[in-house]
Amino acid sequence: MKSTNTQTKKYGMVIDLDKCTGCGACMVACMAENNVPFKENESNKQDSITWLRVYKMDNGKPYPENDICYLPRPCMHCEGHAGHSPCVSVCPATATDYSTETGIVSQIYTRCFGCRYCMAACPYHVRYFNWWDPVWPEGMEKMLSPNVSVRTRGVVEKCSFCFHRYQLAMEKAHYEGREEIEEEEYQTACCQACPADAITFGDLYNPKHKVFELKQTPGAFRLLERLGTNPKVFYLTSRDWVRKQGDNYLKNEGQVIAKGGH
């Protein structure tokens, strides 16, 4: 059969922080979808594996001006410059790679030998190391999905934008004689589960996808944009203080720019 080039895609996410209620459904949907392990004590957040973590942000003001906001943080699938995302650049085992077909940063567990360079390189802390072999209580291994490999001790894991769902959708499309998939055919588990419809997922290049418009919303921002990581997860908010916490700014920086105007 003649293989045809598929169109270049760039999958990304737009998360509306005004809608997000911090309920954690995305976190659990992700764990259930991706066979994420759990252990007796998960309160040490540095070794608690959560591909998608919802952070609580605080405006730092005293009562009653205090305000909080929740920020879900999946892997940002950084494009960097021409696919040189921070983690991909440092992996000595090519265990993590940037796909130019989908824009997804992969993680191949069988190649990973656990050096954790990528964890040090990732400015978003999206990568987690398996310090222990995962253990499922007797009977609970029945809920493991065959679509995602179960990891072992000694490898790094992270959000894959539910890449197996892309594979399944493409397989189905090819089987039905189509070369491309529709927007709703490939959605991540977190996006599908979000009860507040705060997460939108799709091809950032495709004008027919909702994310195409949404990412251009005035005030949309990405985390730590100034590092040049070129992340593919966009955030929307109506609160300035939230946007400001999305990056590191000098004190009074906004004011200096406003006064400049040369």
Binding site: C23, G24, A25, A29, M31, A32
Partner: peptide
């Protein structure tokens, strides 16, 4: 949509 408990009912 579904809540965090509902999602982990298994």
């Amino acid at each position: 949509g579904l809540c965090i408990m509902g999602l982990s009912g298994l």
